[in-house]
């Protein structure tokens, strides 16, 4: 195992342990996601056909805002205790610190999303709990969390603070959202793979691009 992978693993496990003790991140995200899904089900009293078209939007809007909550919290926790400074002093690559933190955030967001799939399948009577949708969820939350982890480290240092993250993140994440929503709708409406497969390709390409760029930039963002 390389130094890089060990460092990533150690940071990831540290975040997992911290979350296991406090359970505040997952709790807040899950409660928000549940409320959001319920509010949407009241707001969108849709007939069955329209529901299938709109449901992927409901899922993705909920996941994005839940991830914004989680990202803000996770980066703020790190800063409150002065952990970041201690981590930055450690002789490990900055990209490894970033990747470890990102992996933890991604896991939290993906777990919330995965819990939503069966719940929404029941509430909206649409088959969301399927392997292709889960795959899309993993790919979509990957890009959102990788940009979100970087942007949260930036926006929390501004005067506006936590409120700035959605403003900074949503437009950057839009290409991802467009791709995932279109592909999810394609799967739900039983469209042929040719109709939505292109969006999956775009999604994976953007994921890769954002991962490389954000890892490269993290060092610049945290430097003193």
């Amino acid at each position: 195992m390389t130094v890089f992978a060990r460092a990533v693993g150690a940071i990831f496990l540290k975040d997992m342990r911290a979350e296991w003790r406090s359970r505040e991140l997952i709790g807040v995200m899950l409660l928000f996601a549940l409320l959001s899904v319920l509010v949407f089900s009241f707001a969108l009293e849709l007939d069955r056909l329209a529901r299938r078209e709109a449901i992927s939007g409901v899922l993705w809007v909920t996941v994005v805002f839940a991830s914004v909550l989680g990202l803000n919290r996770s980066v703020a926790q790190e800063r409150e205790n002065g952990n970041v400074d201690a981590l930055l002093l450690a002789p490990i690559p900055r990209a490894a610190i970033f990747f470890g933190k990102f992996l933890a955030n991604w896991l939290f967001t993906a777990v919330i999303g995965a819990l939503l799939l069966p719940l929404m399948t029941v509430l909206y009577n649409v088959t969301l709990a399927s392997l292709p949708v889960l795959g899309l969820l993993l790919a979509g939350t990957w890009g959102i969390c990788v940009t979100g982890t970087l942007l949260a480290s930036m926006t929390l240092q501004t005067r506006v603070g936590e409120a700035l993250l959605p403003i900074a993140l949503l437009p950057i994440a839009l290409p991802l959202l467009l791709g995932t929503v279109r592909a999810t709708t394609g799967i739900l409406t039983d469209a042929p793979v040719n109709d939505w497969g292109g969006w999956v390709g775009i999604l994976l390409g953007i994921d890769l691009f954002y991962t490389v760029v954000c890892m490269a930039f993290y060092g610049v963002v945290v430097e003193e």
Binding site: Q157, T158, I172, L174, P175, Y210, V213, F217, V221, E223
Partner: peptide, 19 residues
């Protein structure tokens, strides 16, 4: 800090132009 963050965000933002 302002200049650094602006540089990072300005580069990331270009993805929306390419898109």
């Amino acid at each position: 800090t302002r200049h650094r963050f602006a540089a990072v965000y300005g580069i990331l933002a270009f993805s929306s132009v390419v898109f």
